[in-house]
Design a protein around this nucleic acid. Structure first.
Lengths: 133, 133
DNA sequence: CACAAAACTAGGAATCATTACTGTTTATAT
DNA sequence: ATATAAACAGTAATGATTCCTAGTTTTGTG
């Protein structure tokens, strides 16, 4: 199946490229709609899935029910704040090492890895400590 | 809110304790129903959530739409086969080190971590190589 | 033991994210 | 220019999960 150009897909991808937070399909929809008002939610889902299947973007599951998308496909981890729900990138030095260690003695084939940290982000940590005073 | 004993919750927890695969809520429901026929799916969901919130079991998201549950709360990773969907435990040596590395220079508070590897399990790898012959 | 309060339940309705369907439009190779 | 495969909008359908309500069970206390 050859992929054809579409204005809608281009807008979706451009939008994702310019965001560092990792928006859900609905957030993508609400934003792309500003510029292209009659795009449909189904189109957003279909294109996000297409892009993810082709490895051009990442699909993340952070535990809040909705999938999140990331145009940065370089190997990295994520941090999710349990308070505000924000999803941020995290780079840890030993990430390649983890994959190597996991492959040692494993009988199947490991293709990719996904690591997510959970806790309180700096902002939310500050807020809760202020409330305690 | 004090937790009261319930037969249903006991059965759910016992069932999970005896499984090494990481069943979904519906699988738990179908199985516990054999022994306790009029348990409701809502009760299964409520108790899985209660147990997970109290840290007695883990809730996993492996990318197949449904949440999976694991009675083994010790720190470990998971492997998900993209072919058959099986979810298995994986122990890698440097897992504590990863958490330590992640905390270095991070301004928030990291409480827990979730790592999942994706690829082909041994069985599915064997099958696909046989098909090629 | 009894009995009240708080948890818990079954069953079904409601919600939310996502996918499937259908008739129409668009991109692109010839 | 035209044929054809992809993509689209809009809407219906699905599937996982949560919510709601009236009734039941657990458990602490007299």
């Amino acid at each position: 199946m050859t992929v054809k150009y579409s204005r809608q897909r281009q807008l979706i991808y451009n939008f994702l490229m310019n965001r560092k937070d990792h928006p859900t399909a609905d957030v993508v929809y609400q934003n792309v709609r500003q510029e292209y008002p009659n795009i449909s939610l189904g189109t957003v889902y279909r294109n996000l899935t297409l892009l993810a299947d082709r490895g051009e973007i990442l699909r993340l599951q952070v535990g809040d029910g909705a999938d999140h998308f990331d145009a940065d496909t370089s190997r990295h981890c994520h941090f999710v704040c349990s308070e505000c729900g924000s999803v941020t990138d995290m780079r840890i030095a030993c990430i390649d090492e983890i994959l190597a260690k996991a492959r040692q003695g494993f009988e199947g084939r490991i293709e990719r890895q996904s690591t997510c940290f959970y806790g309180l982000c700096e902002k939310c940590l500050d807020k809760t400590s202020k409330n305690r005073e």
